[in-house]
Design a protein around this nucleic acid. Sequence first.
DNA 1: AATGAAGGCAACCGCAGAAGG
DNA 2: GCCTTCTGCGGTTGCCTTCAT
Length: 337
Amino acid sequence: MGRSPCCDESGLKKGPWTQEEDEKLLQYIQKNGHGSWRTLPRLAGLNRCGKSCRLRWTNYLRPDIKRGKFSQEEEQTILHLHSVLGNKWSAIAAHLPGRTDNEIKNFWNTHLKKRLIQMGFDPMTHRPRTDFFAALPQLIALAALRDQLAAAGGTPAASAQHLHAGAGAAGVDVAIQAAKFQYLQCLLQSAAATTISSTAGAAHDAEAAAAALGGGLCSPQGTQDSADLMPVSGSQLPSCTFPEAPVGSEEEGDQGLSYGGGGGGADDVVDVFAWHGGGGSLPPLADLSDAANNNNMSADGCSATASSSFGGAATASSPLPCWPEFFPDDPFITDFL
DNA sequence: AATGAAGGCAACCGCAGAAGG
DNA sequence: GCCTTCTGCGGTTGCCTTCAT
């Protein structure tokens, strides 16, 4: 136990590595292997502590390190593994050949974590944030929306009936609008319910959860490690994923989230998330229009089934958490908001 | 063009577990 | 079983670059 004293020694250089130091370390390790990190600096002629050398080697000089932006698959893998393992960066890195735990950690903190927060998810639990103030903007927007629609068309049912009065192609459009309206009603109700729901799941034990998991983790399509990923049962952790957009791409900021990822086409309104086993009460927004056209929607408009692009994994019984902010570019949402 | 803010990343710090004496 | 040393990990910091004003 106890801290290594190596870094307490005075006179050892700190800070950024020079090219000369890199070459010394690289040459020594290539010739002799790192052996004992503690003795390595002296043997290699470096005025650094062993810890610093190890870090430099593992995070930068190692020949198998992959540089550059994270791919879509890597991003998805990180998300999924983080939902299971939590901040076990080394464990996550083990599933991403060529990536270091430090790199993944930085990527998480600077990109994925922020995006999850922006989307209303708790980055630690991967669940929709349940604190009231986090959900307040959604509640306000939805409440305003409800009032606006109520003022314009009376009750949702009346609005729907009124809208259904049309005939032919126009009637179909109206039916879709009615279905959408009902869906938003459902959103509002769910939002209110969510804010007062328990936060008991917020502090789950990642290791215990991982051990207990037995179902199918929503893994990225084609990810070579997907078979190794810890599975998530339907009753355990939900995990969310981002749409298939280039990570850190220039378009990212402008386009925000894209929809119908995985080649789902324009009709796949939400392939944005694969929500496995969450306890939410909302249906996915996906295929709402189809559902309306096919009369598959239940009376409350919240029973439509989902279509997911995640390896074809059925999510019919896996309600998605749907918030308007998840779909900023969706015409359906922008039409209303 | 200058300046401040924000983002991104490399590196450090300190804790905890494993290993060995 | 206890103590010391070593290694690995996760959190945090600080510097550099980019962007916005």
